[in-house]
C-alpha cells in the first residue's frame, strides 16, 4: 500500500492545504453531521451538499478521479447494506425502498468523499496537532504519533520479509499461504516488540519522563520537568 500521500502535498498545495487543520477537522465533522441530519428522501439538501463538496474539491486541486476511485472502492459495502436496510426501513412504506436506499448510498458517498478530501489536503501531523488542540488526551496523541512514525518502518519491514519469504518458498498451495502469512505476522510482531523496547530505551536516554512534549504551541508550565 502506498502511504506517501499521508505526508501532505509538499509544495503543490492549494488554498485548502494551507487552511488550519483545526478548521478543516471541525468542518469535516460538521459536514458529516449535517448530512446525517438530512431526512430520508430529501434530495435538495443532499444536492447542495454535493455541490459544496464538488466546489471544495475543485478549489483544493485534488484530482477528482483519485477521490472517485477510492469512493468507488468503499461503496460496495454501503450499497449492500443499503439494499438490506431499505426494504424494512420505517420510511420505506412512505417513500419507497428505492428512495431510502438511494439516500443511504448518496449520504455515504458524500461523507466518504468529504473525509477523503480532508485526508488529502491535511497532512497527518497537523491532524494530530488539531486533535490535541481539541483536548484529545496526550497519551492517545502520543500513541498516534508513534503509530504514524512506525507505520512506514513496519510496512517496509513487512515488505522485505514477505519478499524474503517468497524467494524461499517453492510450494504453490493455497493452504501453505496460511502458516506462511501467520509466520510473517509473528515475525513482524516480535520485531515490533523488540523495536518498541529499543525506542523506549532511546527515549529514556534522552531524558523522557513520561510527559509528552512538543515544539508546537506555547510553553506550558505543567509540562516542564521538575527541577
Amino acid at each position: 500500500m502506498r502511504l506517501d500521500w499521508l505526508e501532505g502535498p509538499g509544495s503543490a498545495g492549494g488554498p485548502l492545504h494551507r487552511l488550519d487543520a483545526r478548521v478543516k477537522l471541525a468542518a469535516v465533522v460538521g459536514f458529516v453531521l449535517a448530512v446525517v441530519l438530512v431526512p430520508m428522501g430529501s434530495w435538495r439538501p443532499l444536492g447542495i451538499a454535493g455541490m459544496v463538496l464538488a466546489g471544495l474539491v475543485g478549489l483544493s486541486g485534488v484530482a477528482p478521479s483519485l477521490l472517485l476511485r477510492r469512493i468507488a472502492a468503499l461503496m460496495p459495502v454501503v450499497v449492500v447494506l443499503a439494499a438490506v436496510i431499505a426494504p424494512t426501513h420505517p420510511k420505506a412504506s412512505a417513500l419507497g425502498a428505492w428512495a431510502v436506499g438511494g439516500t443511504i448510498v448518496a449520504k455515504n458517498a458524500l461523507t466518504i468523499g468529504a473525509i477523503l478530501l480532508f485526508a488529502r489536503v491535511t497532512c497527518f501531523r497537523s491532524v494530530l496537532g488539531a486533535l490535541s488542540w481539541f483536548r484529545v488526551p496526550p497519551a492517545l496523541v502520543a500513541t498516534l504519533h508513534l503509530m504514524y512514525r512506525y507505520l512506514f518502518v513496519l510496512s517496509d519491514q513487512l515488505g522485505r520479509m514477505a519478499r524474503a519469504r517468497r524467494s524461499r518458498s517453492f510450494r504453490r498451495s493455497r493452504w501453505a499461504e496460511w502458516p506462511l502469512g501467520a509466520g510473517l505476522i509473528a515475525a513482524l510482531m516480535l520485531r515490533s516488540f523488540e523495536r518498541g523496547e529499543r525506542v523506549h530505551a532511546a527515549m529514556l536516554a534522552r531524558g523522557w519522563d513520561g510527559t509528552v512534549r512538543s515544539l508546537d504551541g506555547p510553553d506550558r508550565p505543567e509540562t516542564l520537568p521538575p527541577t
Partner: peptide, 12 residues
C-alpha cells in the same frame, strides 16, 4: 543507537 529508526521516533 545503531539503528536510526529506533532513535528517531518523532514526526519531524
Amino acid at each position: 543507537f545503531q539503528d536510526p529508526d529506533d532513535q528517531m521516533f518523532s514526526p519531524t
